[in-house]
Design a protein around this nucleic acid. Structure first.
Lengths: 205, 205
DNA sequence: TGTACATCAGTGAACGCGCGTTCACTGATGTAC
DNA sequence: TGTACATCAGTGAACGCGCGTTCACTGATGTAC
């Protein structure tokens, strides 16, 4: 329970939360320091007690997003174990689920224009998220004969790309970019076809 | 050869070109009406002789981008004929090639936040680009037994998504999002695996 | 070919606005004794 | 438990800036006669 009165209690997090809300409702451009401050019930100048500036606030928002994202990916991976296939598919689904559930976080991470290499912490947690998918790919690739086995980093990149593409083109955006299929189905079937192409699921189904 | 002097000659297009350049070098947010005007050697107010305002200029930039894009896709499609497979693969490659060659156009189209349904002209030309890929998918799907044939719109969406994902994650962005593989290879191999999954290329190789 | 005139593309000054950021300050909170 | 004091989170006024947009204007261009 945050304290009321002259001192806010937990302004830092309140500002980050305001950023998520603003980004979610108005897009990455719609976010302003002043408005975030106002939404947290505070003067714009107060922001500088907790952040170096506007960019720094967005970077922290992105960092928190990656943190949740990485946790979600890890959980999805675990939930599919011991089946390498189930783990892999689950992490793919988790990507879309994250974008759905945390749109503000998602946009801060992927559409706000901040670089993942802005700070070491940000780079680290982004790497952690990426690492989960790569580990899942690594495990899965054990089921492919070594001579025709593509690098794990490669097909983890393929899945990452397809997931990202589905989200950007069909799950977000106002009205124009609507898909004739639910994004979840689209991603699920796309990953299915892809894995069949790797010889990892039976050709029939 | 544009005329010099009091009258610009072809200010409208000069402004659109300036927009491309600004968007390319500074990102979709970095573009301002005033700067585009300055770059065209003209007062900001002059812009209003040719466009309703800032948004309108961006929309025209996007429209021109889609126009080129659709042409490129159509050309790629033709170049692969009469092989349905070659046509399909060529359109996929054309996506990435376009993003590479016309980064300003690409960003105006996909990252500037303007909706494809903003004007009927924009919607129409965007539909044309999309149509090429769908036609390629349609043709290709003739080679799949009808009972196990997925909707053509579906796998055209898959390819679209993977192409877009590869571009966004690995071909653009400053330094952070680097892929360990060249984006071209990544997309090529991704589409290859996918088509194998559809049973459209032999399982070997 | 020369003149009068209509058109309209671009000027330049001005506007109100909200932005990010700074600064000296104030007053609530926590701590030492 | 009570008092004195240090800390520091937030205030509020101010700043300079560049933005998108408006307006009455001006002067180059094209056309009719």
């Amino acid at each position: 329970m945050p304290k009321r009165g002259y001192h806010h209690g937990n302004l830092r997090q309140a500002l980050v939360d305001a950023a998520f809300e603003l980004i979610e409702t108005r897009g990455p451009t719609g976010f302003t320091l002043s408005e975030a401050a106002k939404q947290a019930g505070v003067t714009p100048a107060a922001v500088y007690r907790h952040f170096e500036g506007r960019e720094d606030l967005i970077a922290e928002a992105a960092r928190q997003g990656y943190e949740i994202f990485a946790d979600l990916m890890e959980y999805a991976f675990q939930s599919g174990q011991p089946s390498a296939l189930a783990s892999f598919e689950a992490t793919g689904r988790a990507y879309l689920a994250f974008a759905r559930k945390y749109p503000g976080h998602y946009v801060a991470m992927f559409e706000s224009g901040i670089s993942v290499n802005r700070t070491p912490e940000l780079a680290e947690v982004a790497g952690r998220a990426n690492g989960v998918l790569e580990r899942a790919a690594e495990e899965l690739s054990q089921h492919i004969p070594p001579d025709k086995r593509p690098p794990a980093a490669m097909f983890s990149a393929h899945i990452w790309a397809m997931s990202h593409g589905v989200v950007e083109l069909f799950a977000r955006g106002a009205a124009g970019n609507r898909s004739p299929f639910p994004p979840e189905d689209l991603l699920e079937s796309g990953i299915g076809v892809y894995l069949r192409g790797l010889g990892l699921v039976p050709p029939d189904q």
